[in-house]
């Protein structure tokens, strides 16, 4: 993603000038990728398109909330997609129960980011993932990127469930270790 900066700049333009040409470029790049991403995770064509559209509407209307120092365009859009998906599901479920029940109203889940520079973080995360042993990278891909459950991963890989669980535990722990070691080295 050598052009991360380019897309960040486009969002800033949308925020500052309601620049339709900039938005169209963002739309043409991200909407089909959002759709592909959601379908990879099991959404059907219609749902993937609806959520992708929802995210792009948010980008058009809320571009001013984007902070190019804190996150890249793709991270920001991922967060929106995740939160929209959770909100929508929540709405759907509560509608079946009792829509007026305040305890069941959909919640905004905040995006709590820390202050690290967006590009630095991308570089580190990419490096950390590459340093994971292949078997751990595989379970991270299935559990985190695809969203499979432990038992689905066991079915797909043919590994015993216990092995899947311990490998996942190791993988996310190792990932964290790599990210934090890297951060510590960088500070010196």
């Amino acid at each position: 993603m050598a052009n991360a900066q380019y897309f960040s700049d486009l969002i800033v333009k949308v925020a500052a000038e309601r620049d339709k040409a900039a938005f169209v470029e963002l739309f043409d790049h991200f909407a089909p990728r959002l759709k592909g991403y959601l379908m990879k995770q099991g959404a059907d064509n219609a749902v993937a398109e609806e959520v992708a559209q929802d995210v792009m509407v948010t980008l058009w209307r809320k571009a001013d909330l984007f902070d190019p120092g804190k996150s890249s365009a793709s991270t920001w859009l991922f967060r929106i997609a995740r939160n929209r998906r959770i909100d929508r599901l929540r709405r759907q479920k509560t509608a079946e129960l009792n829509p007026d029940e305040p305890a069941l109203q959909p919640a905004p889940l905040p995006d709590v980011a820390d202050e690290m520079d967006a590009r630095l973080r991308e570089t580190r995360v990419r490096a950390a993932l590459e340093q994971l042993p292949e078997d751990q990278r595989q379970v991270v891909r299935l559990a985190f990127f695809i969203g499979q459950s432990h038992s689905e991963i066991a079915d797909q890989t043919g590994l015993p469930l216990g092995t899947v669980k311990s490998r996942i535990r190791l993988a996310f722990g190792r990932l964290r270790q790599l990210l934090e070691t890297d951060a510590a080295v960088d500070v010196d």
């Binding site: 993603m1 089909p32 990728r33 759709k35 991270t75 991922f78 993932l129």
Partner: peptide, 30 residues
Amino acid sequence: RGYVSSLETLAGLDLDGSEPVPLSDRDTAL
């Protein structure tokens, strides 16, 4: 927070690297 931000960044990279699937009606959506 740092770990979660990093994981969200990882997911963002994955989103950006996802195979694009054309929208059924791009012009209407826009």
